[in-house]
């Protein structure tokens, strides 16, 4: 699903250069739930912005869903973001003047989808996160946990191959955080690949695989092949 090879990203100012990622390589398989953790300033968010095609990188190659996305045009990146990736942000990033229906509708409109199809997907996504009855509410009328569920509905409505979650529980209390993680696991069980960026070790432990980044380098990444055994362990069955 996601294959990064020797990715480097340097932020430059007049005075200094900051190596946010150095020879960063990572492979995430189809249907995996991977947590990327590390201390503040380790390069987690840079990884997320590059994985989500929100920023360019300096060297290396990046394949997403079998396609080399290293050298796409701005429009091409927009299209891949829209069709292949669902984003969940720490601050929810809902549009305050739009009701829940229209918020979930935002990425679908950019896909030029027909109105009937959009409506079906929006209702289904909001139903999955338990907010179908509140689709005419504004984000300000919801709690933080509910807002994040709307953001999850927005992320899954387009049926993306990959969901990138950036500290999705960072602004929530522990109960709501657990609910959000339950929801993400449910979505992962439905076959969607999830990459979760977090600094919270407890949340990271709930993922099938943990990747630890320090100073822009992957310092601890269990092999991709371990995925099946971890999944089996979570289900309480033997991988054999």
């Amino acid at each position: 699903m996601l294959r990064m090879q020797d990715i480097s990203k340097i932020y430059r100012t007049d005075l200094i250069e900051t190596h946010a990622l150095r020879d960063f390589s990572l492979r995430v398989g189809q249907g995996e739930f991977v947590a990327v953790s590390g201390p503040s300033g380790s390069g987690k968010t840079t990884f997320l912005t590059i994985a989500g095609l929100l920023e360019n990188f300096d060297t290396g190659t990046y394949e997403l869903d079998g396609r080399d996305v290293s050298r796409l045009t701005d429009d091409g990146r927009s299209r891949i973001r829209n069709e292949k990736i669902g984003f969940i942000f720490q601050g929810f990033n809902l549009i305050p003047d739009l009701d829940l229906f229209d918020n979930v509708d935002v990425p679908l409109r950019y896909r030029r989808m027909k109105a009937d199809e959009r409506r079906k997907r929006i209702e289904s996504a909001l139903d999955l996160v338990g907010l179908a009855s509140r689709m005419k509410h504004l984000p300000s009328q919801l709690s933080g946990g509910q807002q994040q569920r709307v953001a999850i509905a927005r992320a899954i409505a387009g049926d993306p191959a990959l969901i990138l979650a950036d500290e999705p529980t960072g602004n929530l209390d522990s109960l709501m955080a657990r609910q959000i993680m339950d929801l993400l696991e449910k979505i992962n069980d439905m076959g969607t690949t999830i990459v979760l960026v977090t600094h919270d070790p407890e949340l990271a432990r709930r993922a099938q695989r943990n990747i630890h980044i320090v100073d822009g380098l992957v310092i601890d990444s269990p092999p991709y092949e371990a995925r099946e055994s971890q999944r089996a362990a979570r289900a309480g069955t033997s991988p054999d």
């Binding site: 929100l54 429009d75 927009s78 973001r81 829209n82 942000f89 990033n93 990425p107 950019y110 896909r111």
Partner: peptide, 10 residues
């Protein structure tokens, strides 16, 4: 920025 992230072109 969010709209752009969600797929809006320039």
């Amino acid at each position: 920025g969010t709209r752009r992230a969600l797929g809006a072109r320039k």
